[in-house]
Amino acid sequence: MARFLTPKALRTLLPALSLAALLAAIFYLQPRTMSYFGLNLLLNLAVPIALATIAQMFILCVNDLDLSLGAFVSLTACITATWLNDTPLLGVLALAACVVAYGALGALIHLRNLPSIVVTLGMSFVWTGIAVLILPTPGGSAPEWIRTLMTLKPSLVPFPIIASVVIALVVHIGLMRSAAGTVLRGVGGNPKSVERAGWSLLRVKVTMFSLAGLFGVFSGMALVGLTTSADANIALRYTLLSIAGGILGGGEFVGGRVSPVGAVIGAITLALAGSFLSFLRLNPDWQIGAQGAILILVLALRLLVSSRERRI
């Protein structure tokens, strides 16, 4: 047993352990959540957050940071709730254009060697602006098929759990287990050596940013499937949530060290933190603060684990 509990394994397990602890606390406080229906309610909103966190993770992986993700998800939610519902062809084209725009942003950042923080900061205005033009007042409605998908009630296991597992596994296999994924991650670790080995850094950056755009689009669609309508500011808090989720899940800011499974777990942990606090009957004023406190706590635990790692 002791052999498996090496600090390195602990570090990998930490996100999952934090989630388990949080879930246990929620079950203890409110046993009724320990049912199919309860879990469904509890985890519903975690799906779009998990998708956004995966999107952020792709950007973190190439040592960049996306401060426009929340605005971008809001935009795709607006497109989903309007064009994709009314004129599906136009909607699909617009969403595809969003993904292409993200790829182009990656190319621009790479070619001109720009700081991603500032470029995405500027782009957040652009995304919000377009979203306001598309949907000046909150409204729209979710396309029927997305609504159906997001409210699926499979027997035995609630849909959000299945969705989270599928998202985590697909990205894990694609990014962590495939040859192409290794090259993509290598750019975060050592760009020069990847370039010397003959791969185009430009193509890697464009791929990663396009993937981020794609998952941003998925996140917006999933969100609209749950809320059934959208507005231009619907997902602004996703920017910070996605960064925090990625880090909670074991990601690092530099070096291409990311973990798709961890990112999904981190996102769910953050989404659950809110419910946990309301079950605690904590004053709503402290909700945001407690999320910050949980974040700090997990990071402190991680430090404890990795300092043991170093000693051994």
Binding site: G122, G129, L133
Partner: peptide, 24 residues
């Protein structure tokens, strides 16, 4: 209108960074 204002603001921020970007 508000939408165009935001778009132009963002576009100009990005443009300024791209133009003056080489030193950054």
């Amino acid at each position: 209108s508000a939408g165009y204002r935001l778009i132009v603001t963002g576009a100009i921020i990005v443009a300024v960074i791209v133009v003056s970007g080489r030193k950054l």
